[in-house]
Amino acid sequence: MPPQKKKFLFVNRKAPYGTIHAHEALEAILTGAAFEQRISILFLDDGVFPLLKEQNSGDIGLKDFSPTYNALSLYGVENIYVDEESLIERGIASDELSIKVELKTTKEVCLIMEQQDVIFNF
């Protein structure tokens, strides 16, 4: 089997805690990064909420998995994109996010999606 690198995009679209999607997406992302592919992540729609700083989910009995986002760069994730429009719609400023991200317009998001080999949607 010849070694090949594909462009993988993981799209996060859901808020944390209400569903497990953001949490299990993160597990898939870390696995993908371990396979040494070209990994990008996009946070879109309610998917921007997991990036908020200072989450405290202890009182609702759920694990705060957001610190793991800090490890993404260590795992060799190439690009972390956030749809700027999604932040604006939700009244979130970029300095409220827990990690360094690249803000993209919706048009740029479309171009990013076009460039991928594989898109995982969570």
């Binding site: 089997m1 993988f8 597990e27 898939a28 696995t31 993908g32 371990a34 080999d117 898109i119 949607n121």
Partner: peptide
């Protein structure tokens, strides 16, 4: 099996289709 099987499928297949959001 593990999530690696999903990633490997994405690498090996021509198209990966996701059903259910």
């Amino acid at each position: 099996s593990g999530l690696g099987q999903l990633i490997e499928a994405g690498i090996e297949a021509d198209r990966l289709l996701v059903f259910g959001g």
